[in-house]
Design a protein around this nucleic acid. Sequence first.
DNA 1: GTGTACCGATACGGTGGAGTACCGGTACAC
DNA 2: GTGTACCGGTACTCCACCGTATCGGTACAC
Lengths: 204, 204
Amino acid sequence: MTSQAAEGPETVVASRRSKITPEREREFFDAVLEQIRECGYDSVTMEGIAASTRCSKSTLYRQWKTKPQFVAAALRASRRVRFAGIDTGSLAEDLRQAARAAGDWSGKDTRLLQALGHAVTSDQELARALREALVHPEIAALEEMLARGVARGEVRADHPALEYIPAMMFGVLRVRPVLNGQYADADYLVRFVEAAVLPALGLG
Amino acid sequence: MTSQAAEGPETVVASRRSKITPEREREFFDAVLEQIRECGYDSVTMEGIAASTRCSKSTLYRQWKTKPQFVAAALRASRRVRFAGIDTGSLAEDLRQAARAAGDWSGKDTRLLQALGHAVTSDQELARALREALVHPEIAALEEMLARGVARGEVRADHPALEYIPAMMFGVLRVRPVLNGQYADADYLVRFVEAAVLPALGLG
DNA sequence: GTGTACCGATACGGTGGAGTACCGGTACAC
DNA sequence: GTGTACCGGTACTCCACCGTATCGGTACAC
């Protein structure tokens, strides 16, 4: 994005022999996560990543010892809170906006979570990285929303539905492909919030 | 279960050279599904199945042409409606019982669904088998419960939460391991029904 | 008893990925 | 200009699995 595009004949990025830059690293990470989404964790090969990023296997193995470590690094680097900063002053509206935001990254993240879901059971580091990259930040953001709602007196602190809201949101997000054959989009999720989440909280 | 256990010295089941019986077939199916749960779809090998069931690879390849076909057959054979026959006359109680029943097979089925979730995206037959074995029967049973509740006048037919109940139940079931690190047990699910599902339906 | 169909075991070639080693080349520091 | 560290390419070994072929043996029908 640094408008460094036309520096050689064709679009060839003149040979890269210098130390790996953070931008270059991100190319590796993007490539491996995308391949995992498409082909599944087991089918992703270091050779494939090397080929698709036009680097050499040696380069990958110099930076990361094994495939799971490489993937875990990619996950950690991709960590991003998807609906941070939502704070409308109303719990119902916060949840609607969260649903809308979730609908936007639903496909990508759901596929990644699905593809890694099993690999994670045999590699502790990978499991931690996945939780910290894709699960924990969103849960934490949701719980903050709920806490603010409680603080404002919109919901009682001991409301029994409170503890299930994150599971409901994530759950519906994740199983929709299995049940209906398509990823949950923003519209579906917002309607779900209206129809089930808010009523469960007594806000309907 | 036909009390045919002690027929040789040791527990060795005297050499099996006859045609594959349905019982023998079920051993193959059980073995492959169990291995899938433990190691994931991609890691399961025909050689491994052959070894663990003490049959030969040839035998497997004689019956089923490919691994996905073999697995699909295993899924179809394992088809079973987990909470059929629940009909207490009250929607709330039906849902509680369904939750309790679901808690009992939660671990096994959730692991299987997780392990196959990605393989399914690249094999139509496998996808159909999975849906018909593990997803559709349960969904259908749930929807029947809801329909009976509507027919009895417990819930209005156009209640907006109705369409989301199956997704909520399945969703919470499936994401609990990711969120809390443990499978949803009967107790957790029943409390979920009380705290969120019934209130969403206006039955709380 | 005889025949036959099918099982279990084993061996085999082919393929593909993991991870290592080496080598030439280039960017960058000084 | 010189040195050096690190990159990209390639070749290599190891290993596991796929799918096939072969063979001896045994249950079962008749």
